[in-house]
Computed example of a mutant assay.
Amino acid sequence: MEIFESGSRPTRRANEEWFTGTVWQDPVIEAPEPARVRALRVGFEPGARTAWHTHPLGQTLHVLSGVGLVGTRNSAPRLIRAGDTVWIPPGEEHWHGAAPYTGMVHLAIQEAENGQVANWLDKVSDSDYLAVPA
């Protein structure tokens, strides 16, 4: 058993190659093999978002606070709010982030396959991000 005390692992700014705007990440768990689970608490400032990406084994998002958006290719983004949980199946191209004028924090849970948790693609255009939510 291992206990990670609160504050023992630093918050880090998300990689600008894969995110637009200011995004902060706090590690929750990166379980050692043979376990595959990985989880992060991710805080998006208003207007911030991920790039398009997929996950080899899918991803679960649980919104902790604020209002955000989640989008898939060729569809208008959908609003997500505190308490909502989103399941994204393996291989589905998607993005997620804060609403334009409201921050959002979510717990992102995914599993690694051969050490990989995400396949990063192109950045989300402003027109895709600002499309009228479904």
Results as ranks from 00 to 15, higher is better:
121 L>C: 09
108 A>K: 03
114 N>G: 12
107 L>M: 14
122 D>Q: 14
110 Q>R: 07
95 W>S: 06
112 A>I: 10
123 K>Q: 14
111 E>Y: 04
107 L>W: 12
95 W>H: 04
110 Q>S: 14
102 T>V: 13
97 G>S: 01
97 G>P: 06
115 G>N: 07
119 N>C: 09
113 E>W: 09
116 Q>I: 15
119 N>P: 00
109 I>P: 08
103 G>N: 04
106 H>W: 07
107 L>S: 07
116 Q>D: 02
118 A>L: 08
117 V>W: 05
101 Y>R: 15
122 D>F: 05
125 S>A: 11
118 A>N: 13
112 A>C: 08
125 S>K: 08
94 H>Y: 10
121 L>F: 05
98 A>C: 03
97 G>Q: 02
123 K>D: 10
100 P>M: 08
94 H>D: 09
106 H>D: 11
117 V>G: 02
102 T>D: 13
101 Y>D: 15
126 D>Q: 15
111 E>W: 09
100 P>W: 03
117 V>E: 07
108 A>H: 04
115 G>E: 07
101 Y>W: 12
102 T>Q: 13
124 V>S: 03
101 Y>C: 12
126 D>R: 15
110 Q>H: 13
96 H>E: 03
114 N>R: 13
102 T>Y: 01
112 A>Q: 15
115 G>Q: 06
110 Q>N: 13
115 G>C: 05
123 K>N: 11
106 H>R: 04
120 W>C: 00
97 G>I: 00
114 N>Y: 07
122 D>C: 05
125 S>M: 09
124 V>T: 03
107 L>Q: 11
106 H>Q: 08
122 D>L: 11
102 T>N: 08
95 W>I: 00
125 S>R: 09
